[in-house]
Write a protein that binds this DNA or RNA. Sequence first.
DNA 1: GGTCGGGATGTAAACGTTTACATGGCGCAA
DNA 2: TTGCGCCATGTAAACGTTTACATCCCGACC
Lengths: 387, 387
Amino acid sequence: MSVATVSRVVNGQSNVTPETRERIAEVVAQLRYIPHSAARSLITKRTHVIGVLLPDIYGGFFSELIRGIDAAAREQQLQVLLSSSHGDAEQMRSAMRAMRGRVEGLLILAPQVDARGLGELDPVTPIVFMNSRVEGGTSSSLAIDSYQGARAMVRHLASCGHRDIAHVAGPADNYDAQERERGYRDEIAASLSRARPYVIRGDFTEASGYGAGRALGAESRRPSAVFAANDGMALGCLAAFDELGLRVPDDIAVTGFDDIPQAAFVRPALTTVRVRIAELGRCAVSQLAEAIAHPEAARAITTMLRPDLVVRESCGAARARSSFSHRQPVNDGGHDGTDPRLESRGTSDRSRRSSLRLAPQPKPPKPPRPQPSRPSRKQPPSRSRKR
Amino acid sequence: MSVATVSRVVNGQSNVTPETRERIAEVVAQLRYIPHSAARSLITKRTHVIGVLLPDIYGGFFSELIRGIDAAAREQQLQVLLSSSHGDAEQMRSAMRAMRGRVEGLLILAPQVDARGLGELDPVTPIVFMNSRVEGGTSSSLAIDSYQGARAMVRHLASCGHRDIAHVAGPADNYDAQERERGYRDEIAASLSRARPYVIRGDFTEASGYGAGRALGAESRRPSAVFAANDGMALGCLAAFDELGLRVPDDIAVTGFDDIPQAAFVRPALTTVRVRIAELGRCAVSQLAEAIAHPEAARAITTMLRPDLVVRESCGAARARSSFSHRQPVNDGGHDGTDPRLESRGTSDRSRRSSLRLAPQPKPPKPPRPQPSRPSRKQPPSRSRKR
DNA sequence: GGTCGGGATGTAAACGTTTACATGGCGCAA
DNA sequence: TTGCGCCATGTAAACGTTTACATCCCGACC
């Protein structure tokens, strides 16, 4: 038996005698032979692996993102080579180098470094950037419209009657943080022309949000609302205010950004800007898979995902309010105007407080948002299994 | 210039003339040449990648675990090839096959499938199992002592005066779930001999915990305490009780298991069994790295990690209580008896309520647990950066 | 000045596959 | 009976590296 025949059997090719196949299969089983993927992909040029470069993987945002990426990757029969790098451009470069030859494409989330430079490092591997500053260049990019999301949130708070709205910003070198702060400032100027923006800087961690909350709560003239640039910091604020004896939303309103899973679980449930993080991951994988499958059609597509405002308890709004539409390629200009999904819950106080999501995240239009009621003994439709 | 010389330059070997080196480096930079890792590892037999097989990656437990694994991997200059598989043994097998030749070792968390069978599939790659049923076999294993943790929790609840303690169990085919339930039953029998165990089954998701909470809360003779087999389900219970108008812990106590990051953030903060999930991941990576570096010394080490009880608000205990020691190789038999770390917080109500962790998880003995106070404007010592 | 040695560079094998192509056997048709 | 063609199998090149070994050049020492 030659290696070629074995190869044919292992790959299930047809041109081999049944008894030869039988014999080889037997030996393969007995020797516990497993083909060497690296050698295989050396010649086939297919690895079925995508590389994922993240700045960090702590917190609800990233775990949710990885979940979405993983799910989509599995659907596409891809494996994921993960690498985090503290947002350091040099570490990112070295991770990219280490991935060359192992992956067929790269998914990069690099809100702090110049994405263009990264793309130029390896012009041949398809790359999809997420939430990055990309101007021109040849790679695709997928981003959240942080600016519009922030404006919508500030507009909402203003419409609730808040006039002193503080902003807990993210790291100064982070693109999303910049955009959110810019949206905050612009909307303050637009909606509350007489108010002055008040920004206190954090770093997206709960701890920094906690610190900011302590500082804000202790101020002589404390704001009536705090808009944090992400949910983690909003959670930190919540804890700080709880400790200071301030009631949310009665004494002070708190809102976040991202809609990480915890946002719905804390009490008071967090009003935030829903990013559909997992879906963002899925989209990115799809887009990358597409670019891998058809490298000839590689156009640099920049997609902007429009986030939704989701009103829960922490802002003190009497009723829910909605925002703008969901997903909108930035190039075809103009909204379609439809799909202004209402996120309103039931009207009774009881039901409004329940923000536990029993059902999987509702698919795009019109989330049915079931009233979580009837104490059923049988398992409710659960998310994917855990552990 | 021959390929050999180029290889020498790229790998920074010494026996090459400075000007040759210079010229080659220049061309390398100009062509944006990046070595092909797969080809390289084909000959060197080093990939610097470890494979991680998980049943699922949803929820606080897994994101924390991945975080620990990733951090340790980065320290050891390893990359992580991630694959989740819904706990299906067949999917696990196929993922393992796909990883052959790509990874130098495997980290497997398979609480539902027979770990032995998995190990036999590929006897050559070093494997470290986590939280799995492993008897004998040649692979190492790292596990949480779920049984003792559950007993400690029930003992604590009993000592708080609870007599009707219900248990929300995990999936029947899950090893940890089984052990926790066994611990629950045994301790009920030991501490509350006249009480009857009451188990309601969940599947480790928040949704199933929510369902169980609704069911328990509505019962004619509802229990005074609920011990959920993981924090996710405990969170679900909390949401259910909140909705039913039951106050925790006054009307009913709730406790969990794992100490996922959210546990400290919800109000009331969750009393739970701390697993030090990230550390578990780190240990597993270290152990695997060791096995890879010294395959000759490959002994099957089974390490049992001892979890700690952490008392917060949700159980209604007046003061903190501690439990047993932390980390104890199971083979050297017998506890040393030292290190009964107290987890007590400050005594004032205010400080007891604050369970936000400002500092990184305190290292093993004597967590200093700083009183989170002084509203400092500068960043508090944060966890690793986010985004 | 010849020989020896050492250092720079080149050559080729090896890693474990896949696959184009060659070989050879067999059956069938002329 | 001879030839043709098809099908099973084998051979070898190729993938992109690393590395043992060969070669070559040059300087130094005898």
